[in-house]
Amino acid sequence: MKKLAVFLDFKQNELTKNSKSLLNFANSIVEKDSNFQIYLYTFQDIKSCSITTTTKSESITSFTMNNNIHFSTNDCLEKIVLHVKNNNISHVFCSKSTTNDLICAKLAMILNYNLIANIKSLQVEDGLFYFSKSIFSGKAIAKMNGTNGPCIAIFPKGFTGDLVSDDQLVFKEIKIENIVSINISTSKIIGESTIQSEIQLSEAEIVVGAGRGLKDPENWDIILNLAKKIKAATACSKPVSDLNWRPHHEHVGQTGIKINPKLYIACGISGAIQHLAGVNGSGTIVVINNDPEAPFTKNADYVILGDLFEIVPELTKLFDEV
């Protein structure tokens, strides 16, 4: 029997979209191979929730910190380590997040498990795990042949894998049973600020990005209007956030956030390779630029050549009529 733990993330007692996809993926592995059993963990403070999962998982074990501080030292992980060991869990899956990354790296070191991040695909055959991961900021893929040792796998946000269709899975409702609270911490949070935008960039299905072509932070209204119309998150290039035209957390690229929306609309961005490194995971890319030589035009699905100050409002209007 192989035991697989899946880390689940919740937002206000609701399973996040990323966790839902990952759980579906884990379920599909388990359904194909009867030698697996699933355990569910969460590190968020949820009192109750019900999610659907396969017949092979029983309950969620919730590990939470008293003051919601990050799992910043090994001591905070003692109870998790014990749980993994006592239940002989050999594989751990989680969706990339600040908390999960902190926990996974430490667990891997303590348990001496392999650790694989940035997973592009995973197949299980005869009990062996075949991974591939994205490398060189998405410019290439690395394949790793069947390992059967214990491992911790971190999947990027939005990972769906090769899902089997839902109707092949037998679902049931499960409840949170086991609440373990952890009290140790040598750090304290002295302030927090949450991003106000409604749609989180790293999870958005549509993103509208803008660059130095906007010329002035005062001009951002046309971008915000378009984003609002099509329920998109907004992003920017690095110089734009360096100039404080837009908040730092909107900066995408090599040194910023890596996004993988279904649609990315880039307005007044030249498409420097460092910017592309953050957006090349997008499904469809639309570029609006007045320079036919801009590198982005070679890396786009649709290119509109012209003045963004005319095109963006026009496009916003057209989406209205859809």
Partner: peptide
């Protein structure tokens, strides 16, 4: 590291 993009070494070292 921008070659293999794992972002894990600091966590491993902290744990060690």
């Amino acid at each position: 590291a921008i070659d293999y993009n794992s972002g894990m070494i600091h966590g491993l070292v902290a744990s060690g």
